[in-house]
Structures are given as C-alpha cells and as structure tokens.
C-alpha cells in the first residue's frame, strides 16, 4: 500500500506538515465557518481537477478548461438572468461544457490530433470569443439563484457535498467499472487496449465530453456562490487543476493516477496561499513558494524512482 502509493502518501505527509504548522502558529486557520467558506470557494476547482485527472489517465491533456469554465458560467448566468427556470440554467451550463468537451474530443479522437495543441487552440478561441461577445461586463443574477435558494450554510454544504460526490463517484468508476478500466488501459497502451476489444477513440472522446460536463458543473457550483457572474472568471484554472492532478501523482504519460491523490494534491495547493496569508508572509513570495511545493512533490518521486533504477 505504502509502496504502491508512495507519491500520494508523500504529498499527504507534506499536507499534514503544513496543517500541523498552521495548528501551532495560526490555530485560527481551522475556525469552522471561514474554513467551510474557503473549501466551498475551492470546491469547483476540485471538480475540474477530477476531470483533468481522468483525461490525464487516458494519456491526454485539456488546457481549455479555464476558458470553458468562463463560457459555462456566462451561459448559466444568461439563462438565469432571462428568468428561465433554475434547472434549465444548470442543465444548459453542463450541456455547454459537454459540447465544448465534445469539440475537443472530436478533434483529438476523430482526427487524431494532439490534445495539448487542440485544447490550446480551443482555450484561446473560447476566451477571445467570449471577450468579443460579453466584453467583460458582469451579469446580474436573479435573487433565487444564489445557493439555489438555500440558506448560505446549506448551500455551502451542498457545493462541498457535490464536489465530494463527484470525487467518490469518479474514483469508484475509475477503479471498479469496466469503463474506468478502459480509460486506464487506453492511457497505458492504446494498441493493446484495442486488441483487448476496447475502442480507444470512443473512450478518448468520452473522456473529453466528461471533462467538459464536469467543467460545466463546476461553473454552476461557482456561479451560485455570488449574485454576479464575472465573464473573466476561470483564468489560469487549467494550470491550477493540472498542478493539483500532477502533484497528486497522476502521471502525464498516462495510465497512472488515482483520485485520492488528486484530492490530496488539490488540498495541498488550495491551502498554501491562505496559509501564507494567515502567517503574514508577503504576497510576493506566493508564486515562488507555490512553485517550490510543486517541484518538491515531484522531486521526492523522482529520487525514489532513481534509487529503484527505473
């Protein structure tokens, strides 16, 4: 167990160290209500990271999720602002995400184009298209949309609950269902998977659609947290999600990774910036520390691989 999941446990160790330090130097860090608020604000990122992790297990990558997140947020906002029913707003955001994902998937799986290039192209195209259409003007949402009409605490538990449900469901699917195994198989060796009766291109297409739909869901989870939609939202989200996945042990080369690791990686990266604020570190150290943590997490793995002579 420890040997097989060395990376996940080493990241968990770093996370626990950070938390322990916070417990000593800034116990306020764990005050329940602010903690819940911070987790709720970060929860959509976890959902996106889950999608990214599945894409990476299938040996692809998707850097368009940040732009897609903004598009889905605006779609959700516009539908809601048009006084259409709430479920329709949610459904249209998820559908917009799925369509965006399907576009990526069709280009990657259908035409066998490299995913990093395809999603680089959709990233700029969606972002600039949205800027042309919306010009950065905020969308005011109707009153009932925030927290889906629930009291705030209820809404926060709901958002966090959805994130955890998505994580657990994806973990179960990836581990126990044939389709999850198929993603692993395609990521490890597409040709072997094909010979074993799996249709690799269909799997790849499906993975992109899923990531798109999860991005749409994440957008809704973010939109309900405030009464306005900022169309510039989601900038750099792709890098944060990829960082969470790789720190959590998902291999860029495909075939390896589990969602428990993604959770740990996500928590570690999500708590660093607030932790620095709590202990009063100047903001100009943020990026350097963030980068160092990412490197440390992977260097531990690299040193071990080297020792094992792999």
């Amino acid at each position: 167990m420890l040997k097989r999941h060395f990376r996940e446990f080493s990241v968990l160790g770093v996370l626990l160290c950070v938390l322990a330090l916070m417990g000593v130097f800034a116990p306020d860090f764990f005050a329940p209500q602010p903690l819940l608020s911070r987790l709720t604000a970060a929860a959509p990122k976890l959902v996106v990271a889950c999608g990214i992790a599945v894409v990476m297990v299938g040996r692809q990558i998707d850097i368009s999720v940040g732009s897609l997140f903004a598009v889905c947020s605006v779609v959700c906002g516009l539908v809601a602002a048009a006084k259409l029913p709430l479920p329709l707003a949610v459904a249209s955001a998820v559908a917009a995400g799925a369509i965006g994902g399907a576009l990526n998937g069709a280009l990657v799986a259908g035409l066998r184009l490299p995913s990093i290039v395809v999603t680089l192209a959709t990233m700029v195209t969606l972002r600039e298209g949205l800027r042309l259409a919306q010009q950065g003007v905020f969308i005011d949402l109707p009153d009932g949309l925030q927290w889906i009409g629930l009291p705030m605490i209820g809404g926060q538990y709901l958002v966090c609950g959805i994130a955890i449900t998505v994580l657990v469901a994806m973990a179960a699917v990836m581990r126990h269902l044939a389709i999850g195994r198929a993603v692993h198989a395609v990521g490890s060796d597409a040709e072997a998977a094909r010979l074993a009766g799996i249709r690799p291109r269909l799997v790849t297409f499906g993975v992109f659609v899923l990531t798109g739909a999860l991005t749409g869901l994440a957008a809704v989870m973010n939109v309900v947290q405030s009464p306005q939609v900022d169309p510039n939202t989601g900038r750099m989200l792709e890098l944060e999600a990829i960082a969470a996945a790789v720190v959590g042990g998902v291999a860029v080369s495909g075939g390896r990774g589990n969602l428990g690791g993604v959770l740990v990686g996500f928590l570690l990266l999500a708590c660093i910036t607030p932790a620095l604020t709590y202990i009063g570190v100047k903001p100009y150290w943020d990026k350097a520390i963030q980068g160092t943590v990412i490197l440390l997490a992977v260097v531990a793995d690299g040193l071990r691989n080297r020792k094992n002579g792999r």
Partner: peptide, 17 residues
Amino acid sequence: DDLKDKAQAEATTLLGA
C-alpha cells in the same frame, strides 16, 4: 488577478486571518 471570484476568496481568507 483582476478577478471577482478570486477577490472574494482572498477577502474570505483575510477576514479569517
């Protein structure tokens, strides 16, 4: 980063810290 959502998160952290 000139983003409303990020400002909201930063403000939440500041209020707690």
